[in-house]
Design a protein around this nucleic acid. Sequence first.
DNA 1: ACCTGAACACCGTTCAAGT
DNA 2: ACCTGAACACCGTTCAAGT
Lengths: 218, 218
Amino acid sequence: MSENEAMPIARRPVRRRARKRYHHGSLRQALLDSALEIVEESGPSALSLREAASRAGVSHAAPKRHFATVADLYCAVAEDGYRALREHLLKRVAAHPDAAAQALATLGVAYVEFATLKPGRFRAMFYSGVTDRTAFHPLEDAAGSAFEVLVDAIKRCQQAGAVRAGEPRELALGAWAIVHGLAILAVDHQLANRGFSSDDPVVLAREVTQQLYLGLRP
Amino acid sequence: MSENEAMPIARRPVRRRARKRYHHGSLRQALLDSALEIVEESGPSALSLREAASRAGVSHAAPKRHFATVADLYCAVAEDGYRALREHLLKRVAAHPDAAAQALATLGVAYVEFATLKPGRFRAMFYSGVTDRTAFHPLEDAAGSAFEVLVDAIKRCQQAGAVRAGEPRELALGAWAIVHGLAILAVDHQLANRGFSSDDPVVLAREVTQQLYLGLRP
DNA sequence: ACCTGAACACCGTTCAAGT
DNA sequence: ACCTGAACACCGTTCAAGT
């Protein structure tokens, strides 16, 4: 919005600091930090190599060595996002070391909570602009690690007799789908004005995870 | 990809046909058709006013009267998509006029089926590039109408004793979230190489809707 | 009312050149 | 190895001008 007009003045000190040495030293991380700023400020579609370079205080062609194309920068944001998501989930789950069923419910709510805390980052993680993300192995690994947190929680519930028998990964898919669907709909403002019991996605997440646990049948 | 190189030759006849009259007559529809072509060919991020104008055989500034900004074009694609989605859902549900529970299950599978049949269009409907879609009332109305199909199916199930008591809209939200999450993950290639029982999103949709119906509890 | 063509400020991407 | 600056082909958006 109006951040774009104010930006050249606001980032001058950053630019000077970054140019003390010709070799930046940690340009990759600086570009990633800029990228996170941009998506959180203006949404995933506002992310560009040139703007990230500008905020890092380097020329528009400088990112090339670190991010060959803009898709690489998007994937780095997504990878970083999956790592942060995993950390967030583990932190929330740690509060329920013994209660397996409660840990699973908390996990679902925490997923939606993560999305609402950093909507720009979450939307960037699932931004449809990048089609061939399966080619980026670090991203695939980070996404897989986050998913395993959910699979483990399902397994623990089964051992505790709190979840019915079945392939844990398959059950985890349903649990992922329901909270992911809710989170994506929430950050894309698709849930507004539709007569739901609350406007808070986290409250809706509690309802919806409960629905999945109990089932729709009478 | 390589469609871009071949395009100028391929669309010459269209251009001539469109320029027979100075006034195009139905430029809005022509631009929308071009837009659907583009998103299905190259994904939602490839959509642009200039490319749509070019395919419709008009100058790059011609869309202005019909779509003031590129966001308007995205919203028109999304609105059209919701109408098509509603039609698809109604068509599939019509096969089960008496069996309320089976109609509900079919609805969920049909949602994912729609996404996989027209992935570009489906991704465009939920493309994060447009942030303020709530301002576009025709889009909101079309989305609301599609959601009502699901709410009605839930109500019928409750009347038939196939779904437990509760606010129908709230139950519909959970059902929407789980199939929407699965559909989005599928069209964004997030389900590949994760060890699920099938690579077919429609098969997974059957599993997941069944999970929601039965519940995770033992 | 509807469309054109020039104009301007952004992009991504490439490449020769500098350190 | 890492960064710069010029260059080119795309965008969105505006605006005076044509029909």
